[in-house]
Nucleic acid binder design. Structure first.
Lengths: 269, 269
DNA sequence: CGCGTCGTTGACACGGCTCAAGCTTAGTGG
DNA sequence: CCACTAAGCTTGAGCCGTGTCAACGACGCG
């Protein structure tokens, strides 16, 4: 029997104060002030969930063009070359949107594939919120747009990693990114997080071979940066990791300043 | 004296039937049906232009957060690592937005730098159009959103190039991308386009060294794929280029199908 | 117990980088 | 009109980061 509670899901997101969509709510409320009504809407999303087994595509069939939110588990956006080479464009974590909120048609220029067993919820409501400029939902719409911009920033990070960083730097930088994102979703402590990724998935994300990922990982452990065992990442020397990876530590450059009336922000991101 | 008519700008965009903002209008109208009013608005943008010399940042000072559109010339979005390594994230061509239409605050996670002398126009009006859901501007808003999605798709292409393609494949793929984009902007013929990029800029876009770009370029010429001399690219064997680069030839997967009432589309993209 | 998936290790090959020098072109000033 | 210069392009030699291939080990599941 398949269990859809991925080992990657700490209890936080299953039973947190925000219910099913805890990760999403915790991230959005760090970006913009949400009204009680917004929160209510978000909680309501959890009623229409769907389960997906690892290694299956998430958006399929009729519903291929409807955005969903990832409630639990990990997924990837990936592209395949015709000879089988694979590149993972981005990881999708709980609270992320699968597909696009601005979906205006079948933009299928990459696949979203579950990496673990995954639960998703229909997010059409959110898409509507963004498109219609309903002023009562201004806070929510703003937070969602910011999330979109963060996604773009993540893709730029990925481009820099692949284009100009060494294997070692790439690996460390990616770990910092995941840590940071998981923290914002309430899924990581200050120095630990669950990472249900095999080395061959890391390889396809980092543009490296499996063998080299393995060796780089060991080097990072030997250097006292971090440890990875059984899907669990332990950050040992955060400062050093940030130095190695040329990590830009969340300056105001990355988190858009909020208009005064909406200022509410935490330090996630 | 500085002349701001970049050698990269064929007459099309200067004196085309759409005036100053010809590139933008030609791209947008390929994406969605624009009303006469929409076109009027777009033409009006050309009234507030600004000139920038090569190698300068485009968004600076007070106006750093306001989106602009690139009227003529080429620019790049780029990131720098602290030791000076540079990665070009994306090229900006005439008709592209500099900054973000959805700018919700100072998202400065990368610089936009002029690669040639450049003319830009204020695009605040467009940003407003996207945010407010004015139904009279539905066609324009839709086209702008599609442009945003295309930009995301371009970044994914860049990620795949850098992560999983060889130097040779990357180079050819980028040339195909530029050709395709310039055609959509009315700035390329079927087999030729102006490309005002030095090899060291290509290197930073492709994640390669200058020397290797040079050698790869020569190989592509020897193989009868294309020729590049004095800023002019001549495509010699398009089919072969597409095969080499694993180019996905504009399937419906990349250009979102339009709702029937807006169907108007060309084959750009 | 046997099989499959994932991780680890070693030996070796190669794509792409670095360094260094020379070349070409266009612009500049005398 | 021509030297001089700076930027960009080209070429060769050698090195190194990363890939490939192949084998083996560890773990979990049926």
């Amino acid at each position: 029997m398949l269990t859809f509670l991925s080992p990657a899901m700490p209890s936080v997101a299953r039973s947190g104060k925000f219910g099913e969509c805890g990760a999403l709510i915790s991230r959005l409320s760090a970006l913009s002030k949400l009204s009680a009504d917004d929160i209510h809407l978000l909680k309501g999303l959890g009623r229409f969930t769907k389960q997906h087994s690892a290694r299956t595509e998430i958006l399929t069939g009729e519903e291929r063009f409807k955005p969903r939110i990832l409630v639990s588990g990990w997924a990837s956006q990936q592209r395949l070359l015709s000879d089988g080479r694979r590149q993972i464009v981005n990881f999708l974590l709980p609270g992320d949107i699968v597909g696009s909120l601005e979906q205006l048609g079948p933009v299928l220029d990459c696949e979203s594939v579950a990496l673990t067993n995954v639960v998703t919820a229909d997010a059409s409501t959110l898409a509507t919120t963004v498109e219609k400029g309903d002023f009562r939902r201004a806070g929510l719409a703003r937070a969602l747009r910011l999330m979109g911009q963060q996604e773009t920033a993540l893709m730029r990070d990925q481009i820099v990693r692949l284009g100009r960083q060494t294997a070692y730097e790439r690996l460390v930088h990616l770990m910092l990114e995941l840590h940071c994102r998981l923290q914002a979703a309430g899924l990581a402590t200050e120095y630990d997080f669950a990472m249900p990724l095999t080395q061959d998935i890391l390889a396809d994300a980092l543009g490296l071979s499996i063998v080299h990922v393995n060796r780089t990982l060991q080097q990072a452990r030997r250097d006292g940066l971090l440890e990875i065992r059984s899907g669990q990442v332990k950050i040992i020397d955060l400062k050093l990791m940030q130095t190695v990876a040329d990590w830009v530590s969340v300056p105001s450059s990355r988190i858009p300043a909020l208009p005064v009336e909406l200022r509410n922000i935490g330090k996630a991101w």
